[in-house]
């Protein structure tokens, strides 16, 4: 099939970008969305033009690198999937597709479709961990964790840090990302001793990085490729409140 792409071009962080139109020819239904972009880029390169820069790595939906807003929806709207797992069989011949980068003040565009998400790393560095050094850990079975808690912690820990939640939010809030980490560690016994300091530190850093406030509209949950539940934000709010009230 042949498609028309309206795709974002931006030279660098300090330059204003714009949509440009280009054609994607001979696209097969089994191609992934990124493989379709590969085809476009190969055509551009062969004709001496610069390809569109876009981030990707594992191309199996787990590394969280890809960051495309496709037809206005982060990762393109396929439930529970990243853009690299979106296949062209979901598009029609002759369709026009818009492709743009994550849009958020805290995720500046570096070039074309590539954004800087180091703000997420800064949030983790502010407290998204259990403070244990290597060595000296007790036997793994010394601290039993009930299956229900372990499963719920795993549900939260499944976050891949892609940032689709921020891109989907009208306030560019990072609440779902922060909530997932706070819940992952807060649900496990290992995370208890720092539970309330952790949440306060992470939320403060989130604010400092310029992410907006949560509006509880749930757009983050809707686009999350790992289907992280909005419920975790409720847990985050609870823990944050307790954390703020603690002396």
């Amino acid at each position: 099939m042949n498609l028309t792409l309206k795709i974002w071009r931006q030279k660098d962080r300090n330059t204003t970008g714009e949509f440009v139109t280009c054609q994607a020819r001979n696209i097969l239904p089994d191609m992934s969305f990124l493989e379709m972009l590969d085809v476009v880029n190969e055509d551009l390169t062969r004709s001496g033009h610069e390809p569109f820069a876009f981030d990707s790595d594992c191309r199996e939906g787990i590394c969280g690198t890809c960051s495309l807003v496709i037809n206005g929806i982060p990762h393109g709207g396929q439930k529970g999937a990243t853009a690299c797992q979106l296949h062209m069989r979901h598009f029609r011949d002759g369709q026009t597709i818009t492709v743009e980068p994550w849009r958020a003040k805290s995720f500046p565009v570096l070039r074309d479709l590539v954004v800087d998400r180091s703000a997420f790393d800064h949030i983790i560095a502010s407290g998204g961990f259990v403070s244990v050094n290597t060595g000296g850990a007790p036997d793994g079975n010394a601290l039993p964790v009930g299956k229900v808690d372990a499963d719920q912690a795993m549900d939260a820990a499944a976050c891949i840090g892609c940032g689709a939640c921020v891109a989907a939010c009208k306030n560019a809030s990072a609440m779902l990302f922060v909530a997932a980490k706070v819940a992952h560690l807060g649900l496990l016994p290992q995370g208890q001793s720092e539970r309330y300091q952790r949440v306060v530190k992470m939320v403060n850093m989130m604010d400092q990085e310029g992410f907006g406030a949560c509006t509880a509209t749930g757009s983050c949950e809707a686009v999350c490729p790992k289907e992280i539940s909005l419920d975790f934000i409720a847990q985050l709010n609870r823990d944050y409140l307790v954390g703020c009230l603690k002396p």
């Binding site: 244990v132 007790p138 079975n141 009930g146 299956k147 912690a153």
Partner: peptide, 20 residues
């Protein structure tokens, strides 16, 4: 030792119903 270390960090390994 790796398993012990990772458990201490909060890696959510699969558990049996008894918590092990």
């Amino acid at each position: 030792k790796i398993i012990d270390q990772c458990v201490a960090q909060g890696v959510p390994f699969a558990r049996e119903y008894g918590g092990l």
